[in-house]
Design a protein around this nucleic acid. Structure first.
Length: 552
RNA sequence: GGUCCCAUCGUCUAGCGGUCAGGACAUCGGAUUCUCAUUCCGGUAACAUGGGUUCGAUUCCCAUUGGGACUGCCA
């Protein structure tokens, strides 16, 4: 406003420019509150001075280049795949730089609290191998337990006139918003709309005596006519108009900080070096810079990640993955369906570090944990979450597993998430091992039809008599089946066995493949299966004979 | 409405003034002593548009278009 006025008077009153500017300068800070008033406004005495906090949470003693990152979810009871994506970046950055990765619970929204929500987060992180290291020296890590810290910083702002108590009610603000939008102004509490911006001590006391509880607002000295340049590690410098909104720092309803204030205080005193967050935070970057500058603190390096999208089935358009519409955006979905967590990590790693795929294909690294990602290479445009490519990573991942590990993974999944049928399949570990070992002896030619633990058990169901579904459609050649039974010997080696097939084919004037197909369908009920000889060996003579007899 | 971000094959991307625009997934063919799957070989397929800057733009700048985010005492 001031700058606009300045230019308005430019031609005529050089003098008034000076006046305006002085007036502006006078507005830079309001009069600070007395200690008594601060205690009343904040509902208690501040416990620490800034200097004490600096001492309590000193800069970390870490090697050069070590990154301190944090995953800071709000406990909604739902972990989005996008959260996992961000947490993976946090974890990886800390891990590869010998830094520290923290988990901080942003539970400042008391209205949205969900029981057991933190366990959902912790469990997911543990499952996906994102172990955090919450050094208690820098705690507590629940924002709801950091009230004293926020209050102490808020007190300092109140003392120096950089913040003020605001007694605007919800109705007041609704009215203001209405007036602003009908008048075509930007909505929000700023400038002349910030009624209590320059509230006098006696008015504060009057409100307090009346039982009114204030929120604490920033006394913004930003001028939208000026620009502030902020840095994002991948996007570079971004210019914004300065913020002039008197944002809420401490909420009146519960005395807890808003995200903005908590971010300032926590990431400073936890000594976070790199803040990784979704790009929805980009618009508040100038505010955060303003906050850090006001305190004289060094802002962290910011990395704003793009969203994980999908194509909407109805509209055909690309959009962010939605909690409501897309079950596959819930991390729990991958666990329930038995996706190999390692494969999900590989896939996400492939998205967030495009060089990884090539490095892995070249054999330079074994898995994502070994790959050194570059923060600057994190993609800034939204990526479509591609289930097909995830499947490919999963097939590759399972294909490279030792049979014993595969059996264990499938068994663990079935016992935790499976139904009775699936639990039965994993009961006999020897049989399961034999089934899953088929066509896995040659590392270069491993079958790659296993994608998830669940689907793995499904495609081998026919090995269990209780789950075997005979094929009623197929027209068997009874002569062929009889001939097979006549010469069948489970002890035959593969060549001997095959020679018998060829002999039968010649005898009945059919193709080798026809004989094989008759056996395949009789044994499995399916027309597509792995190697027949292996199936017969795993099933055993009794079961083979029984099924063939039943088929013809 | 205002502010900001983004834009290379269908998808994820490499590229950082001069390349036949490379790779991966998907897809389509062919080969691989029984189907399927593997494996191998090969093919189709992209710089959103218009202006500049330059000897020369996918690359730099500006518009346009398209997509997205924010504009809460939610994060």
């Amino acid at each position: 406003m001031t700058a606009a006025k300045c230019s308005y008077f430019l031609f005529f009153h050089i003098f008034s420019i000076k006046c305006e500017c002085r007036k502006y300068k006078d507005l830079i800070m309001r009069t600070g509150l007395s200690e008594d008033l601060i205690a009343r406004v904040l509902g208690g005495l501040p416990k620490y001075t800034i200097a004490e906090l600096e001492k309590k949470f000193p800069p970390r003693n870490l090697p050069d280049g070590a990154m301190v990152t944090r995953f800071a979810p709000s406990p909604t009871g739902f972990m989005h795949i996008g959260n996992l994506y961000g947490a993976l970046i946090d974890y990886k950055l800390a891990q590869q730089s010998n830094g520290v990765f923290m988990l901080r619970i942003e539970d400042t929204d008391t209205k949205r609290e969900v029981a057991g929500a933190v366990d959902v987060v912790k469990n997911a992180m543990h499952r996906f191998g994102l172990e955090y290291n919450n050094d208690e020296k820098y705690g507590p890590y629940y924002q709801s337990q950091r009230k004293e810290i926020y209050r102490s910083v808020a007190a300092e702002l109140l003392r120096s006139g950089r913040a003020y108590p605001c007694f605007l009610t919800a109705e007041d603000m609704e009215r203001i918003r209405g007036e602003q939008s009908s008048a075509g102004f930007a909505t929000g509490i700023y400038g002349e709309f910030a009624r209590d911006r320059d509230i006098a001590a006696e008015d504060i006391i009057r409100h307090l005596d009346n039982g009114d509880v204030p929120s604490i607002r920033l006394y913004s000295t930003g001028d939208p006519a000026r620009r502030i340049f902020c840095k994002d590690a991948v996007r570079g410098s971004i210019g914004f108009p300065e913020n002039n909104e008197d944002l809420v720092l401490i909420k009146s309803n519960d005395g807890l900080p808003t995200y903005h204030f908590a971010h300032l205080v926590d990431d400073h005193f936890m000594r976070t070096t790199h803040v990784v967050r979704g790009e929805e935070w980009l618009p508040s970057l100038p505010l955060h810079y303003q906050l850090f500058r006001m305190m004289g603190w060094q802002p962290p390096v910011y990395i704003h990640t793009a969203t994980l999208d999908k194509i909407d089935g109805d509209t055909g358009k690309q959009r962010k993955m939605s909690k409501r519409k897309d079950p596959e955006c819930n991390v729990a979905f991958f666990l329930n369906e038995g996706w190999p967590v390692g494969a999900v990590i590989e896939y996400l790693g492939n998205i967030l570090a495009s060089g990884y795929e090539e490095a892995k294909l070249k054999g330079a690294v074994k898995n994502f944990w070994e790959y050194e990602m570059k923060p600057k290479k994190i993609p800034m445009s939204g990526a479509l979450f591609d289930m097909k490519k995830l499947e490919w990573w999963a097939k590759e991942y399972i294909g490279s597993m030792a049979v014993s590990d595969l059996v264990k993974s499938v068994t663990d999944w079935a016992n935790e998430y499976g139904d009775d049928k699936q639990k039965m399949q994993v009961a006999d570990q020897n049989y399961l091992t034999a089934v899953l070992a088929i066509e896995r002896d040659n590392p270069k030619r491993v079958r790659k039809d296993f994608i998830t633990w669940k689907q793995t058990l499904e495609i081998v169901e026919f090995f269990w008599d209780d789950l075997f579904v005979p094929n009623a459609e197929y027209k068997y050649n009874a002569d062929v089946l009889n001939a097979f039974l006549d010469t069948f010997n489970i002890a035959d080696d593969k060549d001997t066995w095959w020679n018998k097939i060829v002999e039968i084919a010649q005898r009945f004037g059919v193709k080798n493949g026809d004989v094989a197909m008759n056996l395949r369908v009789a044994l499995s009920g399916r027309t597509n299966t792995p190697d027949l000889y292996s199936i017969i060996q795993v099933m055993g003579a009794d079961r083979v004979i029984k099924r063939i007899k039943a088929a013809k």
